[in-house]
Design a protein around this nucleic acid. Structure first.
Length: 192
DNA sequence: GTAGTGATTTTCT
DNA sequence: GAAAATCACTACA
């Protein structure tokens, strides 16, 4: 059985909630100039255009969220709060406007020797650690630069809760995280 | 220890 | 002009 299986576009081209849940435990690989950065995904959130007031796509297609309306398997990276970026995986069919927000990963390698959880335990922080900016917006997740690997490890203990950091739609339990990881976010006292 | 607010820029109304 | 899928720092108990 193949140990390091690169995820194909068919992985993303499914129900957003399923993709969000199955992203946990997968490995995010980013081949920047010379350094190969690897992180294990431990926390995600689902954003689905229809019926989701918190989704950027819920108020129609704009230039910023255009990527989300495209085909599955691409990276949607947006700039927020003047200083941070957030990484998403576009899911489902073209024209729907759905994506999975990557909220936290565990550093595996490529982070200057100091692989501390505090480096990547938040949407803005992990983008800073991976050096992701809007230049990577729209990158093909099945290409060579940025992709996911399935390393068929032991099953992940998954838990879900309401999403963090949004003002509407907080009643939807569309946040998924690895209960055994010490790298999940939760800025303040986000009670579960 | 917890709680609150400022930073800083893009994007949309 | 206001809000935004955030984070870090400060104040106070």
């Amino acid at each position: 059985m193949p140990r390091h299986k690169k995820l194909q576009r068919s992985f993303f081209d499914r129900d957003t909630l399923v993709v969000a849940r199955e992203c946990l435990g997968k490995y995010l690989i980013y081949n920047s100039s010379d350094v190969k950065k690897i992180g294990r995904i431990v926390e995600t959130e689902a954003y689905i255009g229809k019926d989701d007031p918190a989704c950027h796509a819920s108020r129609g297609r704009t230039k910023r969220n255009e990527i989300m309306f495209g085909p599955a398997g691409f990276a949607y990276i947006y700039f927020i709060y003047g200083m941070y970026h957030c990484l998403n995986f576009v899911t489902e069919r073209e024209g729907l406007g759905a994506a999975v927000l990557i909220r936290a990963v565990e550093p595996v390698s490529g982070f200057g020797g100091k692989e501390a959880n505090s480096l990547t335990n938040g949407p803005g922080k992990l983008c800073r650690a991976f050096d992701l900016t809007r230049e990577q917006n729209g990158v093909d997740l099945t290409g060579r630069l940025l992709y996911l690997e399935d390393r068929s490890e032991a099953e992940v203990a998954i838990e879900s809760s309401s999403r963090i950091g949004i003002r509407s739609g907080t009643d939807l339990p569309w946040r998924f995280f690895d209960t055994n990881s010490g790298a999940v976010s939760g800025m303040k006292k986000s009670k579960v």
